[in-house]
Design a protein around this nucleic acid. Structure first.
Lengths: 166, 166
DNA sequence: CCTTATTATCTTGACGTCAAGATAATAAAT
DNA sequence: ATTTATTATCTTGACGTCAAGATAATAAGG
């Protein structure tokens, strides 16, 4: 099943299905199952490090989007939405919390009163600057057991797969 | 950046970081970002198909675990927990809902009154049998644009990466 | 026995998310 | 000008999840 013969959790699931439902071709389930489990593990590891910085990964997601947009670190909720794969309700909720915590502020647009700008505060900027350092270091740690060749190949395959959905 | 020169969403994020924070090595962010986005897209596609079968992916997760365990399709909550990467509170909640919907029933163990068995009902069995057919077909659809070689290689790399966390 | 530790499950309270729709302002069409 | 369509943001209500701890039964130790 695998090169070195070690069966992982997903292999056990596939073995069960093959015994119970030999009519099913469960090959894709292996890939999708591993992808999901890996994503869950990685998400938890990422969350744990960000929590030490006082940020949920949701909060970091917004602050990092503002930070990497460059000075003056201001984007509309709509622009934030485009970049973050969440619904408008979720974004409103995130902004509310970040505003309460003093990391961002809502600036009214006098030229179009439908819209606002979300701006990093000084505190928000300082926080995300430190957090992104820890986050990037953590990402290196999480992927350190993959060789350079494996990382390049994995990135190529993920990019190709992802292109089907974006 | 990519072989064919097409920049995807994650490339844009990396480009922003490289401009704003050239001191950071964001190479791992590409892999982890694509993995997360892909997992989110795939999760939504899977959810959509299962919803047509009247099941959330959470509900399907439990029913499928019971089904593939084989007859008589009974496992304890603890056994279900081991197989599903969720907390005990989440599992209790899932079982409650499935029981209300008539897909499973709790059977008391007369020899150890701390424990119960979760058993698929006839309705639950029929439902999961149909749902797994649709689910597997959907998984084939979702991965159909990858060549056999790419799928094999992706599976190899995901297995290797996942092994770091399990 | 009787106490203490362990095991198995469930409850609680908080959080993040979404779909659907509400509110409000601007733009377009006549 | 006045209506209609579009755009931008926010609100609501429901759901799934988790961490921490509560409850209850069995097992182990003295």
């Amino acid at each position: 099943m695998s090169e070195d013969g070690k069966l992982d959790h997903v292999d056990k699931i596939l073995t069960q299905w093959r015994r119970e439902r030999p009519d099913l071709d469960v090959e894709p389930m292996g890939i999708l199952g591993r992808l999901k489990r890996l994503s869950t593990h990685l998400g938890r590891e990422v969350e744990a490090v960000l929590m030490k910085q006082g940020l949920s990964s949701s909060a970091f997601d917004v602050l990092a989007t503002l930070r990497r947009a460059g000075a003056p670190h201001r984007l509309s909720p709509g622009e934030l939405l485009e970049m973050t794969m969440v619904s408008s309700g979720t974004m409103t909720n995130r902004i509310d919390q970040l505003e309460k915590a003093g990391y961002v502020e809502r600036i009214l647009n006098p030229e179009d009163r439908r819209s606002v700008l979300i701006a990093l505060t000084e505190k928000g900027l300082a926080t995300v600057e430190t957090a992104v350092d820890a986050h990037v270091a953590n990402q290196h740690r999480l992927s350190k057991n993959l060789s350079a060749a494996d990382k390049a190949e994995l990135d190529r395959l993920l990019r190709k797969f992802l292109a089907d959905f974006e």
